[in-house]
C-alpha cells in the first residue's frame, strides 16, 4: 500500500529534489519498487555495446578532412558601428539634458479670506514667493460668484 502511495507521489511531485527525496527514503531500498524498474544488465541487452562494433571502420581519419559547420559570424560594418555610436551619444545627451535641467520652482504664498457670503468675502494675497523670491500675484475674478483665480509670476529684475 505504501509503495502505491510513494509511486503516486513520485509521479505527482513537481520538483526533482522532492522526487529524489522519495528515491532516497523509499524507492531505492524497496525491492517491490525496484522491481518495477529494469536493471542495468537487461538495459545493456537492449542497446549497442562496443563489442557489437568490431567491424566498424575507424572514425577519425575520414573526419580529419572535414570541418565542423560553424555559426555564421555577423560581418563587421562601419555603418552599423557609426549608427550605434550615434544612437548611444544621442541617448546620453538626452539623459544629461534631462538631469541638468533644474526642476520648476514651487510657488508658495499666504492668502487672506474673510468670513461671509460670496459677495462680501474679501480675498487678499498677503505674500507670494516662487523659489524663495518674491513673486507678483495676479488675481482674476470670472463672472461666477465666489470664484477667484490666482496665479503667480516671477518678478522681473
Amino acid at each position: 500500500m505504501a509503495c502505491k502511495w510513494v509511486c503516486f507521489a513520485f509521479r505527482a511531485l513537481p520538483l526533482p529534489a522532492w522526487r529524489t527525496f522519495l528515491l532516497d527514503r523509499h524507492i531505492d531500498h524497496c525491492p517491490r519498487c525496484r522491481g518495477g524498474a529494469l536493471d542495468d544488465e537487461a538495459i545493456r541487452s537492449l542497446g549497442v555495446t562496443p563489442a557489437d562494433l568490431q567491424n566498424e571502420l575507424s572514425l577519425f581519419p575520414p573526419a580529419a578532412g572535414r570541418r565542423l559547420p560553424r555559426r555564421r559570424a555577423i560581418p563587421f560594418d562601419w555603418r552599423y558601428a557609426f549608427g550605434a555610436l550615434l544612437a548611444v551619444t544621442l541617448l546620453g545627451a538626452l539623459v544629461a539634458l534631462f538631469r541638468l535641467t533644474p526642476p520648476e520652482p514651487i510657488a508658495q504664498g499666504t492668502v487672506y479670506v474673510t468670513e461671509g457670503d460670496a459677495h462680501e468675502r474679501i480675498f487678499a494675497v498677503i505674500e507670494a514667493q516662487i523659489g524663495g523670491e518674491p513673486a507678483r500675484p495676479i488675481l482674476f475674478k470670472p463672472g461666477q460668484p465666489g470664484m477667484t483665480i490666482v496665479w503667480f509670476e516671477k518678478t522681473k529684475n
Binding site: P16, A17, R19, T20, I27, A37, L38
Partner: peptide
C-alpha cells in the same frame, strides 16, 4: 543531479 536521478528512474520504469 536530482534531475538526472529522476530521469534514470523514469527511464528504467518505462523500459521495464
Amino acid at each position: 543531479e536530482n534531475t538526472v536521478r529522476v530521469h534514470l528512474f523514469n527511464a528504467r520504469v518505462k523500459l521495464k
